[in-house]
């Protein structure tokens, strides 16, 4: 089994807390012997790092420049992500699980799931409703709609705490069972996530 993490930040690209959360999760899963591919964004062009066993980082960049909004930028980056993950899928013999972090790679993951039948776990740490100063602006409405579809399209949704669980259910009007509270700082976090990955690939 090989897990493909998709995150828009990872050191040295640090926008907020997500870079550290993703790095810590990858380290803990690697200690369990899991093969991990990380697809993340680079501001300095496309390159691949294979500095540690069973861990490969593919840093992608938008094939289009400049951009008028974050939406055109992120959608073009998603097409690149779909390309890279499809290449991983076609060149590796392992079963693949996608694990996205927040909304940024939801479009690519939804397409990959449908096209290649790969399971998709989505972790949600925050919502546009909370981040945006004007959640009803056209831009935030677009991002909120991406989140709305993401929580419905993914195979399993992970949130950090009960509060976020309630927020997701209420704000995104979610009515499904495939949501679990899973705090990445919990001692048994990696065991529970590994169990989830295993269950999804053996469906």
């Amino acid at each position: 089994m090989r897990v493909v993490f998709l995150s828009w930040e990872y050191p040295p690209r640090i926008v907020g807390e997500l870079a550290w959360l993703v790095q810590s999760q990858i380290e803990r899963l690697r200690k369990k012997g899991l093969k991990i591919d990380l697809v993340t964004i680079s501001d300095a062009g496309y390159y691949v790092e294979e500095s540690a066993p069973n861990f490969r980082i593919t840093r992608i960049t938008s094939p289009v420049s400049p951009h008028s909004t974050i939406i055109t930028w992120i959608v073009s980056v998603n097409v690149e992500a779909a390309r890279v993950v499809a290449d991983i899928y076609h060149s590796e013999s392992d079963r693949i699980v996608l694990h996205t972090h927040d909304w940024h790679f939801a479009p690519a993951s939804s397409a990959l799931k449908k096209a290649l039948n790969v399971p998709w776990v989505a972790s949600l740490y925050s919502l546009e409703q909370h981040r945006s100063l004007n959640p009803s602006s056209p831009l935030s409405s677009c991002i909120r709609t991406i989140e709305w579809h993401m929580v419905r399209e993914c195979d399993f949704l992970l949130v950090r705490d009960e509060w976020m669980h309630r927020e997701v259910m209420n704000t995104l009007s979610l009515d499904r069972e495939m949501v679990a509270v899973s705090n990445p700082s919990a001692a048994d976090w990696e065991d529970r996530v590994l169990q989830l990955y295993t269950a999804l690939v053996s469906r």
Partner: peptide, 11 residues
């Protein structure tokens, strides 16, 4: 998807 401008709508 709602979108802030034409290019975002296209995306």
């Amino acid at each position: 998807y709602p979108a802030p401008d034409f290019a975002s709508w296209i995306a």
